[in-house]
Write a protein that binds this DNA or RNA. Structure first.
Lengths: 337, 337
DNA sequence: CTGAAAGCGCTTACAG
DNA sequence: CTGAAAGCGCTTACAG
């Protein structure tokens, strides 16, 4: 303890074990070509000195890092679910995850933000990167997979099968006997919103029902943005007997609006949402909705990224995760008039 | 484009701008002593080449990294809330956050796990580290702050004022007229569980009520572990008229058990929880509980860590975040017999 | 104001 | 089986 060093380095271990740092490195990385005696001494030195390898130094030298990166705008529940799914996929793979979150709050809303974050992680720390709901496509030398990409994205991506989900939701309402079905869509620059609206139109089309554009309102997925279109729909001379909202947050808001207006759900109005967030099961009545397992999205995205890290692909991989209709109390047959 | 390099480095920028890499570094880090002409050329070169600085290389050289680390076992809702609070604190501070999650699932439950993670981050990438609900105390050269530390912890830490919260909860029941108040505690190795039980005992003591140990059951904070103790309590010859559960998850389970037994809440049994998770407001009846803002915990922990990074302290800082009673429908006066 | 050079802690051919 | 040495991409005294 003559020198007061601030960190225990590989050099210290080497000295303590009486070998070179190359040998220490080999032992740590489990590489062949070390006598068992030397390996033993190195291991002993490591535990005596409490040595821990430097992630940064080894990342700088190594090309394969065995770490995946993730970039997200916030840690609200959607991202939290994604993270859980990613961890499910990583379990036991030998890969770790590093999440980098920039402290400056506004930077987050600027255009190049995700690109910067991805470069930061991929260049140096991670073998590839996951981007959650990016505002724009992102590129990198290392593979990048988007979860919920923008509309028309040309990146590797994972998203829910929004189109099929909407079709099933609307078909459910049709089967109950509804003919005037309103839609409250989301921001159409997002692929998800677009596909959900497409599904709505497609299902009505298939049923031979003409699309009535006055029955289509638009929010931006956030609950509050559903209030105005919901009221507009219900103020119609001939209001819809059912409303399909493109997110559960918005659907629950529609439910509130309906009750405030003295409407019985589902007696006077059936309501279907999309997402199956936990609150949907707890509303009164509980919400019929389309389940998209966000956790599963994270899982599939991590799997895809892992495979791309091993076999880089120049064609674009996009995977659609199935959705499923969950029928609960907020839908029923229309009042027979 | 004669050389096909894989990454744009500072060297490339320097060459392109006709300066040395030292000058490039100075421009990037906003250091003085660069002529405006040189700075201009460097900036131009950076944008032409699309240069992005290497987080890893600069971390290796620099002592101050302007990055905080966070280590957690999972990303379930508790940790997600913590993350939100941490991001609140970081906003605009110029500090970033890096979360490192090990992929191997069991490692997580082993003893030295947090220590290893903290060393990994703190040694090299971060100026300091946050540890969420560690199983044991963790040390490092760089400052470490625990959120919800173990009982008797000697680390810097942030935790809810669990004792005061329990006292208020039990006093609320006492004020309603309850005298036989059951407790379902948590795992007592956790400081939080211990303090909550202490608060219960203290409040009864102050009210001059002898502690009846048969009224004390124990779970481990997870919902399911409350079922057996709840039934045991309600099977008593003289059952409690109120039950205080040390977590909302457990309290909601008690509510279920009570209803399954045909008890009216709060008519036959009052129930109080602890935590104020979102589900508590939605139960039927809604749960009276003690609010501990987990997000606030994250916020305060990040603030503390930031201050410790700037002024390292050798005394132990522990901060207690206030809790607050939220009275809802699950508590009322006992039936007058 | 500017640059050459040392060095952060590792890994990896290369030569024994 | 083992080690000396180069180099990953930066920052930072130091000398001009």
């Amino acid at each position: 303890m003559t020198k007061s060093k601030t960190t225990v380095t590989m050099m210290d271990v080497a000295r303590n074990a009486g070998v070179s740092i190359a040998t220490v490195s080999r032992v740590i990385n489990g590489q062949p070509g070390v006598s068992s005696g030397a390996a033993e001494r190195v291991r002993a030195a490591i535990s005596t000195l409490g040595y821990e390898t430097s992630l940064v130094a080894s990342s700088l030298r190594r090309s394969r890092k065995n770490v995946l990166g993730l970039v997200a705008h916030s840690f609200e529940s959607y991202t939290a679910e994604i993270l859980k799914g990613v961890m499910d996929a990583l379990g036991g793979s030998g890969l770790d995850l590093i999440v980098y979150a920039a402290g400056d709050s506004y930077g987050t809303e600027s255009h190049g933000w995700e690109q910067r974050q991805v470069t930061l992680l991929s260049g140096t720390l991670a073998d590839g990167c996951l981007v959650v709901a990016p505002w724009t496509d992102v590129r990198n030398r290392a593979p990048v997979v988007a979860i919920d990409p923008v509309r028309g994205s040309r990146m590797h991506a994972v998203m829910a099968d929004n189109f099929a989900g909407s079709v099933v939701a609307v078909e459910h309402l049709l089967a109950l006997g509804h003919r005037r079905i309103g839609l409250i869509g989301g921001r159409v620059t997002l692929a998800a919103a677009w596909s959900r609206e497409e599904g709505y139109r497609h299902a009505l089309d298939q049923a031979g029902i003409d699309i009535d554009e006055t029955l289509i309102g638009r929010g931006d997925f956030h609950p509050d943005t559903a209030v105005a279109p919901a009221n507009a729909l219900l103020d119609l001379a001939e209001p819809p007997t059912a409303i399909f909202a493109a997110s559960d947050g918005m659907a629950l808001k529609v439910l509130e609006v309906a009750r405030a207006r003295g409407l019985d759900v589902p007696g006077d109005l059936s309501i279907v949402g999309f997402d199956n967030i936990p609150e949907s099961a707890l509303s009164n009545p509980p919400l019929t909705t389309v389940d998209q397992s966000v956790r599963r999205l994270g899982y599939e995205a991590a799997r895809l990224l892992m495979s791309l890290v091993i076999h880089p692909a120049h064609d674009i991989h996009q995977v659609l995760v199935p959705t499923e209709l969950v029928v609960r109390g907020s839908t029923g047959p229309p009042r027979t008039s």
